[in-house]
Amino acid sequence: MLKRTGFHILSILVILLCAVLLASCRKEDKIEVRSKTLYSYFDTVTFIYSYANDSEETFSANAKIIEDILRDYHKMLDIYNQYDGMNNLCTVNMNAGKDPIKVDRRLIDVLLFSKKLCEITEGKMDIMMGSVLSLWHDARLSDPQYLPSDEALAEASLHMGFGLLEIDEDNLTVRITDPEASIDVGAIGKGYATEAAAKALEERGVSGYVINSGGNLRCIGNKADGSKWVAGIKDPSNPDLLSAKLQISDCACVTSGGYERYLQVDGKRYSHLIDKATLRPASFHGSVSVITHDSALADALATGLFCMSYEDGLALVRSLDDVQCIWIENDGTVRRSDEI
């Protein structure tokens, strides 16, 4: 009797052990993640990841599709360099106050999208702030860094606003009416390009890919095992820590914060995101993350929401379909929109 009991227990033990080993083996059966790093676009590093368990050849082909699109948009939206055989934003800026410039249809679409977002954010996300942004850009890149003077900012602010841009959809031309004004699509460019690349893969039926272009995350489908990706939102006051975690798939997540690119003068940090109302770095929040399907929309909204109060931002988010937001406040408080 005793022997039999012992045998029973032993059997149960063996079965349990097998179950545990099986479970742990399944856990080890991980997706083989492939990745590629790009350095040359939008002044940031772009990582392309495949969680699709696809072959190296398939991954290379898909990564090439993405890179080709990013390169095209990078050239079109570059405000510092011109390229042979094309008119880009640098060309448009250099011809401010002169004749209309003929551009690619895709560039017209970027500008029309920017116009829509400028209206939605009530001017908080305005690509026609080049005159002001260039002052902050120069100050940030100089050594030592400095703050632009009140006089210089006030003078530059006379030459900004979307009203200074004429877009002729029929003739595919663009003209800046004020010779001192200029376009800067820093708030929307990489998000737009990332979205275009993601759509190209979606049209080919690809799933299980992620494009991470300098904090501009766009997930295509799910991981190969059907699970979601986990994105952590950094604590702006200590980027080693996370303030929030969220599960995402088939959508974009873009964070605007002042903790990665900033200007430091006399020990004080100033974010690179400039509030149109004050002409100075916005300081409403530590960071703002926007989660929505379209990476271009997420990018533009993150910039706009960073430059407005939580109350105004929440009202804006609620007025839009399928847009969620996480605000990390300067004191570390985490606030979320309704459905996240």
Binding site: A231, C253, S289
Partner: peptide, 10 residues
């Protein structure tokens, strides 16, 4: 080789 539950940080 770090078994982190988070895939990306932003």
């Amino acid at each position: 080789g770090d078994n982190s539950v988070v895939d990306f940080t932003l």
